[in-house]
Nucleic acid binder design. Structure first.
Lengths: 329, 329
DNA sequence: TTATTAATTTCAGAGAAACTGAAATGGATA
DNA sequence: TATCCATTTCAGTTTCTCTGAAATTAATAA
């Protein structure tokens, strides 16, 4: 059976024109190369060189050189691509993220990531938490960034940062003039507009307020426009309130337990592709400090995120089963 | 360094879905395959399968399978082509032959040769002896079939058969009525037309006749037409006289030493391509009996032709250095 | 859950293959 | 003919790969 390495030796000798130089290139002794060649000739059943001095090929040798050089090159390139893939220099990364992260955080970390990886294709979906989890679960994307899934969800979750809810109201509103964190009681007289993100807030005082609310709006732009018009107020995660237009303000809540936890959603028991793993690492290392630097939250990140090993991936998702908040934004 | 055989093992396992079946296909024990896979994963730096049960690939494994299957297939096909070439099932055969052989003998042996070799390309030139040798010498053709070259010619020669010269004359001619082999004296009163083939006849009696001749014609058809018209007579190798038209006859010469020796012309010190070697063998084995069966010559072939080994190729051409006849036809 | 079964992995030793360095051979050059 | 250089041969060593037994792990049955 003809070995690729024998082919490589032959091609090197044929191209060098003599054994000595070829042996040097191959990091072998001339005798080793000579033996390989002899064996190769035995295996193909005919002489490859016209003379002992390896500077002239037979017809068979010429054919072998043509074929062999092609194979060796192609093989080396293929192996290089495998390594490039394994070292996440090439590949394809598909992401799904809630819009607030997609718009406010991803743009800050993505450029550096792609800079060294000009052969990596990236596709990103910005969709609500529920869809993020669905896409992760179905394998449509490698990684998701979303609020914490329900504990029984078939995906694992690694929390990255907390995002407190804030009250969004018109600059003219009564609330805007209160010079301290707002209490639930401050909201009692306001018309509360519900939204996808606030849907999953569990605080009892909030429940009471939201039960009375009659309107749900899922689009942030519309939500803000309604608040600005003085029609009502709403609760949004701080990250969604970074670029508020003139006429509306965001006020902190006194109840700092009202928050969503945003993190990485990934499929259970599936090894990430090398690019995805690399991007995950970047997320874990860079998102929490980035969020902290935005000054949205004065407190520490909720947990010290540590990348789970393959077998433990599932555990890290199951460990915490506190209230599973969610944010559609 | 990733070996092709490791890739092959991986591809086989990935396609079989388990190690046991793959090991069977590879004619290895499962433990050997398992170790190969483990080493492969180490070399690429990541897991290729999701679980120990090898039925589900990681992204890296999928990429490796794609790349690897392609490489293994391509390699196997390439090696198969090299073998096909070495076993003369594929390749290209270029021949040059004097027209008499090209027209009368080659068609009888070529069909069977090409029948088992439907991927062999064949190119044949029918040209005079001198050009045959030139094409062989310059490497334009693998093999030539021609008269014996001069002893110092840079080509080797393997004689295949003798071809006696015969007298071509009109049916109405005086010579046509002589009921025995013709003697030189019979020709004394005839107008002798010279030709490329007869040019190199060395017999002294012929010399005397040809010195008196004034016309040389190199085209057989014209030559025959002239003879038919009664303009003169000419001497042609018997093989060129097999399909004489009405109106001319060929008569044997009493001097049976007047002959050309036809054989294989090949380049010195050049290994034939496998197809060429195979065709050469067919020529050596089949041409002499074929010529004998044509009844052109009652005697034995001049030597027992034996295919020369690589180093001896030159010798076999040098051994005989008797009168180097030639035939332009 | 525990026992059973099947598949895979680990390990140590055997065997095969490839490599090296020294000596022999073979061509080319003076 | 002698010398030089490249290549080959050879024997011994090193490195790899394979096997078979035992251990581990996962899946299935009780």
């Amino acid at each position: 059976m003809i070995k690729l390495e024998a082919l490589r030796a032959f091609v090197t000798v044929a191209e060098a024109g003599n054994i000595r130089d070829a042996a040097k290139k191959l990091c072998r002794t001339p005798s080793a190369v000579s033996m390989t060649l002899k064996q190769l000739e035995e295996e193909v059943g005919g002489p490859l060189f016209e003379t002992d001095r390896k500077n002239s090929l037979t017809a068979l040798g010429a054919f072998m050189l043509e074929t062999g050089a092609m194979q060796v090159d192609s093989y080396d390139r293929a192996i290089e691509r495998v390594h490039a893939f394994a070292e996440n220099r090439i590949g394809r990364l598909t992401l799904a993220s809630v819009p607030s992260v997609a718009a406010n955080l991803i743009p800050q970390i993505l450029p550096r990531f792609v800079a060294d990886r000009n052969e990596v294709e990236i596709e990103m979906f910005d969709i609500d938490s529920r869809s993020v989890r669905a896409m992760v679960e179905s394998g449509q994307v490698d990684l998701g960034i979303a609020g914490r899934p329900a504990p029984d969800a078939p995906v694992s979750f690694m929390p990255l940062f907390r995002d407190r809810f804030r009250v969004i109201c018109s600059t003219d509103s009564r609330l805007a003039r209160i010079n301290r964190p707002l209490r639930w009681s401050d909201l009692r007289r306001e018309n509360l507009i519900l939204n996808g993100a606030s849907e999953r807030i569990k605080a009892p005082s909030y429940k009471a307020l939201s039960d009375r609310a009659t309107m749900t709006v899922r689009n942030v732009t519309t939500l803000v426009a309604l608040a600005r018009s003085g029609f009502g107020v709403t609760l949004l995660p701080a990250l969604s309130t970074t670029d508020l237009p003139m006429g509306v303000v965001a006020r902190d809540l006194a109840d700092t337990s009202v928050e969503r936890v945003v993190g990485i959603v990934e499929r259970n028991g599936i090894t990430l592709s090398p690019v995805a793993a690399a991007f995950r690492k970047v997320l874990v290392e860079e998102l929490p400090p980035l969020v902290a630097s935005l000054g949205l939250d004065e407190r520490e990140p909720p947990e010290t995120p540590q990348p789970p090993k393959r077998p433990e991936a599932l555990e890290s998702a199951e460990i915490r089963s506190t209230d599973p908040e969610d944010a559609a934004l």
